[in-house]
Design a protein around this nucleic acid. Structure first.
Length: 698
DNA sequence: TGGCCGAGACTTTTT
DNA sequence: GTCTCGGCCA
């Protein structure tokens, strides 16, 4: 009866899919078919009548993953997936809060602040509270507040041990009060508010515990403390939690992800079934062996070894570039050759540790006429013109939204300057109300603005969503404004696109209310990916590549200080996270993998000399094919291995010291007591007198 | 109100 | 090197 669902699965996968009503931890390695297991399990549970679609709660990390799960599910089962509780933590919490807004002490039309909105609120607050923004930078305050909420803490539970932390706590409390007044919630608040509501209201909690007998969690290694706690609340003592994750792919510790939740889960849920999915369906074995060898250097692991039934494939190609431009030129050449062999550009990815590295690559690709696409950067709903239009729409839905009001009260410019705003804010503070409320009694230009918003509200009344959006854009004067701007054409095109987005939204969702659309815009800022029809080389950070796969992958900038990043060394267990990042990068490749590093590169406006990444040493030499060493010609002439004191040393040259090991020359001082500064990989940076130091060229 | 200039930063990022 | 932000001036 259910055989057709299981036929394509291996034994481990099938075991996971067909588990009974018990909690289980699935350690799913890269490329081991984890999404398939997750969706097949849901289908299997429903198909066998163990649970109805309404009894399932499935959590993913991104909207994209949630969508994919829904798509696959409807392909497997003839059911309507629309009402199912499958979504991100934030999306599901939002759903809870919308349904029970009274219990959560929120207005029915509460709005969601994205990170930029939140920062704006904080900046405004700091000004209002007369806080020294040098001592309390808005970004740090934001990190403090979000960090606290991720841990499940509010201001009243924050410890304060000095004036600074006391102040932070005070700002935190004031910030929450401000959001409450405006009827807005930030991302972390969605989770925390929902968690508190379920914790407090036992009737509600039991209701949902009865309902969601099967809870499934994707990317479990990326859950935060609060998210895990939320899961525990919903699971109660009896429900079955199916947690799928890979501790080796935990690369978001820096933003609160806690892979230790996997161990806690085993203990708290008395997990009897830990199933490892280790067969990889993606890569050839050379690539997997390299990945296994690298990750084996991490101590803090649950333990797992990927294998494949496919052959060993091609060796991993290693390229030693003279500098960053040389590295880029090499990549361009190889990409051209691959394209000539018939590999689609979209099946080739160039990965790097940090975004700044893309510039040199882009330049080289542009000159070579290779089409490419860079992932990251601003997304559709984050663009200024879109945020402006959305702010007008937000005011139509909830005029008490101060953030939205401040964004557009004078955009396009209508002569409401800083003075009038200050008066307005003063008045609002006086009556403990919103800016909108204070604006009601104002005259002149402010009154004209409130009239505008009110007429927008009237015009929108009864209109279908897309027409509403179009009307508000029209009435706002945004288009006229951009007409006069130099680069306004793109912005106008984007505003038109917003109307299209509304049409798509109505078609793809049951909802067609303005509030739902605004929620969608906040919760899902739009895709990074552009038109898939366009064949282009893929450029992205390693983080952005998680979950993707390509025929060929280039990992560039494999240098100490860059990858692993120097900032990571000072962090607790930072190096292990960098290594997991490297593991993720390597396992993106199906057939061919290139690793490259440059002896020097331009960084922060300075030339920096780096030695090859330690991760390269962690790969068995037998798997590697060294393509060449493009060494500067002078170093070539000196020949290898001859100790030499008389010969001038070149900055950037690799050296070996009998005691300190490998390093790179950073600086040179000539004269009778000539000395060099060497950055040793293991021993740090040292000045050495050439007369005594037994330096050897590499 | 907008534009210009200097200072300072500058891993990774989804919701 | 390059971008953003804030302050200041016309």
């Amino acid at each position: 009866m259910t055989e057709h669902l299981l036929v394509a699965l291996n034994d481990r996968q099938r075991e996971a899919v067909t588990l009974g009503p018990v909690s289980a931890l699935i350690l799913a390695g890269a490329g081991s078919g984890k999404t398939r297991v997750l969706t097949t399990r849901i289908a299997w549970l429903i198909h066998n009548g163990l649970v109805s679609p309404q009894g399932i709660l499935a959590v993913t990390f991104t909207n994209k993953a949630a969508r994919e799960m829904l798509t696959r599910l409807s392909a497997m089962l003839p059911i309507n997936t629309r009402g199912m509780w499958i979504g991100t933590f934030h999306g599901l919490c939002n759903r809870f809060l919308k349904t029970h807004h009274r219990e959560a002490n929120l207005p029915a039309m509460f709005q969601i602040l994205d990170a930029a909105d939140q920062l704006a609120v904080i900046k405004r607050l700091l000004k209002q509270m007369n806080v020294d923004e040098q001592k309390y930078p808005a970004r740090q305050v934001q990190a403090y507040i979000n960090g606290a909420k991720e841990e499940g803490l509010r201001a009243d539970r924050m410890e304060a041990y000095d004036r600074h932390s006391e102040k932070l706590r005070e700002i935190f409390a004031e910030y929450d009060a401000q959001c409450q007044r405006e009827g807005v919630v930030d991302f972390a608040e969605l989770l925390l508010r929902c968690h508190e509501m379920l914790g407090r209201d036992s009737v509600l909690r039991r209701h949902y515990q009865e309902r969601f007998r099967y809870i499934l969690v994707d990317e479990f290694q990326d859950t935060s403390r609060l998210q895990y706690s939320w899961l525990k609340l919903l699971a109660g003592p009896t429900n079955a939690v199916f947690a799928v994750g890979d501790d080796d792919q935990s690369i978001y510790a820096f933003r609160g992800a806690r892979a230790d939740n996997m161990q806690d889960f085993q203990r708290d849920f008395n997990v009897q079934h830990v199933i490892k999915l280790e067969q990889n369906y993606r890569s050839h074995s050379n690539i997997l062996e390299a990945a296994n060898a690298i990750i084996a250097h991490n101590k803090n692991r649950l333990g797992k070894n990927l294998w494949t039934a496919e052959g060993q494939g091609e060796p991993i190609r290693l390229f030693d570039a003279y500098n960053d431009q040389d590295e880029a030129a090499f990549i361009v050449d190889e990409v051209k050759a691959l394209a000539a062999e018939g590999v689609a550009l979209s099946q080739i990815a160039v990965l790097y540790r940090s975004n700044a590295q893309s510039r040199v690559l882009e330049h080289a690709l542009f000159s070579a006429g290779i089409s490419y696409r860079v992932y990251g950067g601003l997304r559709f709903f984050e663009r200024a013109e879109i945020k402006h239009a959305l702010a007008y729409l937000r005011l139509v839905a909830n005029p008490d939204d101060d953030t939205a009001l401040l964004r557009v009260i004078n955009f396009p410019a209508r002569g409401i300057g800083a003075r009038s705003l200050e008066q307005l804010q003063e008045a609002a503070r006086g009556q403990e109300g919103s800016l909108w409320q204070a604006a009601q009694t104002a005259g002149g230009k402010v009154a004209a603005f409130t009239t505008l918003i009110k007429s927008m509200q009237e015009s929108c009344n009864g209109l279908p969503l897309p027409e509403m959006v179009a009307a508000v854009i029209q009435m706002s004067g945004l288009k006229q404004h951009y007409l006069t701007e130099k680069e306004g054409a793109d912005r106008i095109a984007n505003l038109d696109e917003l109307v299209n987005a509304a049409i798509t939204f109505v078609n793809e969702n049951d909802a067609d209310s303005l509030v739902d659309f605004l929620t969608f815009a906040s919760l899902e800022a739009g895709e990074h990916q552009a038109d898939p029809g366009h064949d282009a080389l893929q450029l992205m950070t390693v983080h952005a590549a998680k979950g993707l796969e390509f025929h060929t992958v280039f990992i560039s900038g494999l240098e100490e200080g860059l990858f692993p990043h120097e900032q990571s060394m000072i962090e607790h267990e930072g190096l292990e996270e960098e290594r997991r990042l490297m593991y993720v990068a390597v396992t993106r490749a199906r057939r061919r993998l290139y690793l490259s590093h440059a002896q020097s590169r331009m960084l922060h406006g300075q030339v920096r000399y780096n030695i090859p990444s330690r991760f390269l040493d962690e790969i068995p030499q037998a798997l590697l094919k060294r393509l060449n060493a493009r060494v500067p010609s002078q170093a070539m002439q000196t020949g290898g291995g001859m100790p030499s004191i008389s010969m001038p040393w070149r900055i950037g040259e690799g050296v070996r010291h009998p005691k300190f090991g490998q390093g790179v020359i950073l600086a040179y001082e000539g004269g009778s007591d000539a000395r060099v500064q060497v950055n040793f990989r293991d021993a740090g940076t040292k000045w050495l007198a050439l007369e005594y130091a037994k330096l050897e060229k590499l």
